[in-house]
Structures are given as structure tokens and as C-alpha cells.
Simulated assay, not measured.
Amino acid sequence: MSTRGARGALLALAALTLIWSYNWIVMKQALAYSGPFTFSALRYVGGTAVLFVLLLARRESLAPPPFWPTLGIGMAQTAGFQALVQWALVSGGAGKTALLAYTMPFWAIALAWPLLGSRPGGRQWWSIAVAACGLLLVIAPWQGVGSTRSVLLALAGGLSWAVGTVLAKRLFVRHPDVALLSVSAWQMLYGTLLLVLLALLIPQPVVQWTPPFIAAVAYNVLLASGLGWALWLLVVQRLPAQVASLTSLAIPLMGVLLAWLILHEQPGIWEVAGMALIAMALLSLRRTSMR
């Protein structure tokens, strides 16, 4: 991979960090006006429409990419991850839920080894260990992480996202000519169909179409869902699975900082120490990926 390609992926990840870190606050606030599955379905119906409009605007082919791999990505990355974490937010705080969901990198590393034959190198093992210690300090389970159901749902969401990430990497390896935007749109369409089905079958509170809720849906449709997943697949396409997954830990760290600035949730000493360790691991990974 070229240095330019790696830099492009890291720039995409920087933009994604800003979009997704703030969205954890938005998703939590949206639950005051809607049920979790209804909100998930709304955001992804709109996000899917945005991606297909982009395909048409760019005059790219609407032919679907390989069906089964794309379906697997959609079920895991779009439907599974979103439904589980949005459900976790019902009884869990935005910051803690985000941090638990971002155990994804460690699930992804475990899956990438047997499925992709991608064994971490020496420096990556060191980064994994440091990042894991940092994440443990930030979560600080000895201080309590919320309801058991919320914790398990968030962890399951991280595992589901990891499955989608590894499946996407394998698709790009086996089909290097597949169009990134096409995969983004079609996997989201498949996952959205399941989210809509869940919203219809599971009893949900009546949606309150207030200005804050409309703004939350718009933010998710245009940025967090449509643009966000396209940027994430660009990162997965251009970076090794371990590097792409571990560098995504910058997102919950930024979420903690935004919660501090916006919600005045000042991080404690454990969180500060953990963020310092994760930042150290990310810096090491950045040097490795640029090489």
C-alpha cells in the first residue's frame, strides 16, 4: 500500500472520529423521542437513500456486489451493531456504551487471524497490549459500568461490528476491483431491511417529531450513517484489519472529551491514564501503517 493511500485512510478516520464520537451523544438524546429500533430504522433508511443517490450522481453501476459477502457485512455491521448498541443506550450511558462497543478492535484481531491469516507483528502485539490496558482503565469496571443487560448488549454490538469489519476486509481482498461506494450502499440496504423488520415487529413508543429529534435523524442520515460507513469501509479497504480496528479507538476517546465539553462529564484519573495509554498505542500503530 502506498504512503498516499495510508494517509488518505488516516484522514478519513480523522473525519470519522469527529462524526461518530459526537453521534453517541446524539443517539442517546434521540431516545427521549423514539424507541431504539424505530430510530435505528429511520436513520438507516435515510442513510441508504443517500448512498444510492450518490451512486446515481457519480454514474456508478447499481449492480450489486457479491451477494453473500455483502449480505454478511450488512447483517453484522449495519443491522447487528446498530440494533444492539442502540438498545444498550436505553439503560446505559452514552460514554460507557461507546467504550464497551469499542472492544470491537480486540474481537476483530481475534477473528482476522483465522479468517484472513493476518497475524499481528511484534509492534502490533505491543500496541494491542497497551491499548487493551488503556481501554480497561477508561472503562474502569471496578467502578461499575451500568446495568448488566446494557453491558452485554454493548459488548455484543462490538463483536457484531468486528465480524462485519473482517468480512469487509476479506471481500476487498478477494474482489479488489469491487467499488467501495457500491459495497457501502448495498450492505446498508440489506442491514436496513432487518432493522425495519425489527422496528415493525417489536413494540416501540410513538415517535415525537420534535425539532431536536428531526435534527438527530438528519445528523445520522447525512453524516453518521451515509457518509460515516462509506468512510469506515475506505479505512478497512486501505489499512490492515488490526490497524483499522485499533485506530478506531480514537472515536470513544473523542467521545469522552466531547462529553466533557458538552455535557460537563469530567473524566476521572483512571480515564485520563487510560486515554494516555491508548494514544501511545495509536501513535505506534500510525508509524507502523505509514511504513
Score class of each variant (00 low, 15 high):
Ile128Thr: 12
Ala129Ser: 08
Ala129Val: 07
Ala129His: 06
Ala129Glu: 09
Val130Gln: 00
Val130Met: 02
Val130Cys: 13
Ala131Tyr: 00
Ala132Val: 09
Cys133Val: 13
Cys133Asn: 09
Cys133Gly: 03
Cys133Ala: 13
Gly134Asp: 00
Gly134Pro: 04
Leu136Val: 04
Leu136Gln: 06
Leu136Ile: 05
Leu136Thr: 06
Leu137Met: 13
Leu137Val: 12
Leu137Gln: 03
Ile139Tyr: 01
Ile139Glu: 02
Ile139Gln: 04
Ala140Ile: 06
Ala140Asp: 08
Ala140Pro: 06
Ala140Lys: 08
Trp142Gly: 03
Trp142Asn: 06
Trp142Glu: 09
Trp142Met: 01
Gln143Ile: 01
Gly144Arg: 09
Gly144Met: 04
Val145Trp: 09
Val145Ser: 08
Val145Ala: 12
Gly146Ile: 15
Gly146Pro: 09
Gly146His: 07
Ser147Ala: 14
Ser147Val: 12
Ser147Trp: 02
Ser147Glu: 15
Thr148Ala: 12
Arg149Phe: 09
Arg149Lys: 14
Val151Tyr: 00
Val151Lys: 05
Val151Gly: 02
Val151Cys: 03
Val151His: 03
Val151Pro: 07
Leu152His: 12
Leu152Met: 14
Leu153Tyr: 14
Leu153Thr: 03
Leu153Lys: 01
Leu153Ser: 00
Leu153Pro: 08
Leu153Trp: 09
Leu155Met: 08
Leu155Arg: 00
Leu155His: 08
Leu155Thr: 12
Ala156His: 00
Ala156Ser: 12
Ala156Arg: 10
Gly158Asp: 11
Trp161Leu: 08
Trp161Cys: 01
Trp161Val: 05
Trp161Gln: 07
Trp161Thr: 07
Ala162Phe: 03
Gly164Tyr: 04
Val166Thr: 04
Leu167Glu: 02
Leu167Val: 12
Ala168Gln: 07
Lys169His: 12
Lys169Ile: 12
Lys169Glu: 08
Arg170Tyr: 15
Leu171Met: 06
Leu171Pro: 06
Phe172Thr: 03
Phe172Tyr: 11
Phe172Ile: 10
Val173Asn: 08
Val173Gln: 10
Val173Glu: 05
Arg174Met: 14
His175Lys: 15
His175Trp: 14
His175Gly: 07
His175Thr: 13
Pro176Trp: 13
Pro176Gln: 06
Pro176Ala: 14
Pro176Tyr: 11
Pro176Met: 13
Pro176Thr: 10
Asp177Met: 07
Asp177Glu: 15
Val178Gly: 12
Val178Ala: 11
Val178Asn: 10
Val178Leu: 07
Ala179Glu: 15
Ala179Cys: 11
Ala179Ser: 15
Leu180Val: 11
Leu180Cys: 05
